[in-house]
């Protein structure tokens, strides 16, 4: 039986070809990742497995779907803008050839104070400071209020300084997150997909063979 010898050969050569050729990168999904640092929103856009999306429009919407601003990604697929409005934002990337991706930034990320403060007005600084410091778990045990009094710096200024240095410290982590987000499919998924197809062959053959038997 020629058939049965050759079929695996064909399949095998196909798989070898794919594995050999596969090296450069996977493609064909776009993703956008956005994060907030201070009062600026940073975004990074890429095709799956790394290739950056260059010169593509990025549109920013607020929570009600109103268009706030529009920009273009640079050579590194990055685009940043000042927070245009105190609301949850939706960042939509329109890459060429019918590709699109979006990322939602919740309100808490845009303005953490507003959320932890909630209904309380700005005047209750001590309270707001304590809640936010607790939520960020940076309460190192130092009595910051005493510190501020002795040095003549207001609590808010300290908070601003801490926020700034935190942003600085966190930015490599955010960069790493942005890089790892939207990677290409893993080997498991590829093998799994091929497995599904072989399973479907089985199902299809089962049904066609039943049809045959009836006749």
């Amino acid at each position: 039986m020629d058939d049965f010898k050759l079929r695996p050969v064909f399949l095998f050569s196909l798989i070898i070809f794919v594995i050999l050729f596969d090296m450069p990168a996977f493609a064909h999904k776009v993703s956008i990742f956005a994060w907030v640092e201070d009062d600026t929103v940073y975004t990074r856009s890429k095709f799956s497995k790394g290739k950056r999306v260059k010169n593509s429009p990025v549109i920013v919407f607020d929570s009600d779907g109103n268009k706030l601003l529009e920009g273009k990604t640079d050579e590194n697929g990055e685009f940043s803008f000042k927070i245009p409005k105190q609301s949850a934002l939706k960042v939509v990337l329109k890459a060429s050839m019918g590709h699109m991706a979006e990322w939602k930034i919740p309100f808490e990320e845009i303005n953490p104070e507003a959320v932890s403060n909630n209904s309380k007005p700005e005047s209750d600084i001590k309270n707001s400071y304590e809640t936010s410091s607790r939520s960020q778990t940076i309460n190192s045990g130092t009595d910051l209020s005493a510190l501020s009094e002795s040095h003549g710096i207001s609590k808010q200024e300290i908070k601003k300084l801490i926020d700034k240095s935190l942003d600085k410290k966190l930015s490599p982590i955010m960069n790493m997150l942005a890089d790892s987000y939207g990677g290409g499919p893993s080997l498991t998924e590829i093998i799994g997909g091929i497995g599904y197809i072989f399973g479907l062959i089985g199902v299809a053959m089962y049904f066609t063979s039943r049809k045959k038997k009836k006749w």
């Binding site: 450069p24 990168a25 590829i190």
Partner: peptide, 26 residues
């Protein structure tokens, strides 16, 4: 059916073969 399956598998993985040429991702 077996040919169809094999060709489908080929089509399925072909989209992972990315050509790093040109401006877009193909």
């Amino acid at each position: 059916i077996p040919y169809m399956g094999i060709l489908t598998a080929g089509f399925f993985v072909a989209s992972l073969i990315h050509l790093p040429i040109g401006p877009a991702s193909v």
